Simulated scan of single mutants.
Amino acid sequence: MKEEYLSPEIKTGIEPNLDFDDLTRLSEVEIRYKLKVQPKDRPKVTMAMEAYKLIRPFFDDCLHHHEEAWIMLLNRNLKVLGVARLSVGNQENTIIDPRTVLQLMLKTNATSSIIFHNHPSQNLAFSPEDLKVTRNIMDACRLLNMNCLDHVIVGEESYSSYSEGGY
């Protein structure tokens, strides 16, 4: 085999103009696959993060002025069926009624939902009332074989997730 027929990666270590019939004398080619970003270093994309990106524009007019609650309705494959406003409140609170959540889910044939609301103060911590209403909605959904997957507090640049918070 002539050197001119060898690829540049294999030529290493071969004397020029030398005929080769013994392939064991060819240089070993080493191929390495090294990730520049290790899986542990990659940002974890969560369902709450993706949902936040979709719902955030709905809060543009109220983010700092008053609280609003919205629901994202999802089918069995977690595809978005639609979003609906649950309530409009004041600077300090808004009402999220579990019956309204279930009504919207049943009317749209949604099997899952994610609840969103904002805090005008931009404090993304869940209040005791937020935690209570979330547990009530999740319990009510389970009775009807549906799921409330998360409750997300929407902020200007970030969010807080009930599911990710380990509540």
Rank of each mutant, 00 (worst) to 15 (best):
D139K: 00
V37R: 05
P39H: 09
H66F: 12
P128E: 06
D61R: 12
T94N: 08
G13E: 12
E3S: 12
F58I: 03
Q103H: 13
D130I: 00
L124E: 01
E67G: 08
A84F: 03
L74M: 07
K79N: 12
F126G: 01
D61W: 14
T12I: 15
V101P: 01
N118E: 06
I137H: 02
D130V: 00
D139W: 03
M146G: 04
N93H: 15
T12H: 09
V37C: 06
A140L: 12
Q38W: 08
V29A: 11
F58G: 07
E30P: 05
K36M: 07
K107F: 09
I96L: 03
L74E: 03
C148Y: 01
S161H: 04
E28D: 15
L143A: 08
E156M: 15
P16V: 10
I95W: 13
P120Y: 14
R76Y: 10
A69F: 02
M1H: 09
M49C: 14
K107T: 10
A84G: 02
S163L: 10
H66A: 10
P16E: 06
Q122D: 15
I31L: 08
F58H: 10
G166M: 07
N118K: 13
L26E: 12
L63E: 05
T24H: 04
G82I: 13
I31T: 13
I71D: 01
V29N: 14
L131K: 04
K40V: 01
N109G: 09
S7Q: 14
